[in-house]
């Protein structure tokens, strides 16, 4: 990938990662590594552990996600993150805002073409 594209991805993620994480947790609770692996399936979501974990910590403090240590079967306990009611609301709000931004940018690109 070109240097410009990498920089662009990083810039864009800075503002949108919160929405990304909320959306990724919407289908159901996930623990850190599972969430990271899930995001890594997407081309522009190659974030590092050092970015994800502090962000999860902040979102938890904001009250939009909750965290619980859970043990399933014989596995070691893992910390599962889930959306709170407030998080659902934030996802709806930010999601609508995101779609508006995309529509606006798309309209501008159309005019540019």
């Amino acid at each position: 990938m070109s240097d410009t594209a990498t920089k662009w991805d990083a810039q864009l993620r800075k503002g949108s990662l919160e929405l990304v994480v909320l959306a990724a947790l919407a289908p159901g609770p996930r623990y850190g590594l599972a969430l990271l692996n899930h995001l890594h399936q997407f081309d522009t979501m190659q974030i590092t552990e050092g970015t994800l974990y502090p962000l999860l910590d902040r979102l938890k403090r904001d009250g939009v996600i909750s965290a619980n240590w859970q043990q399933q079967g014989d596995e070691r306990p893992r910390k599962y993150y889930a959306l709170t009611t407030e998080g659902q609301q934030r996802l709806t709000d930010l999601g609508a805002r995101w779609r508006q931004s995309v529509a606006d940018i798309e309209a501008l690109l159309q005019q540019a073409a």
Binding site: Y31, G32, Y53
Partner: peptide
């Protein structure tokens, strides 16, 4: 709490 979570992540990766 932070340390426990990161340690847990590292164990998960090692296991995998």
């Amino acid at each position: 709490e932070v340390l426990r979570e990161i340690e847990s992540h590292i164990f998960d990766v090692i296991e995998a």
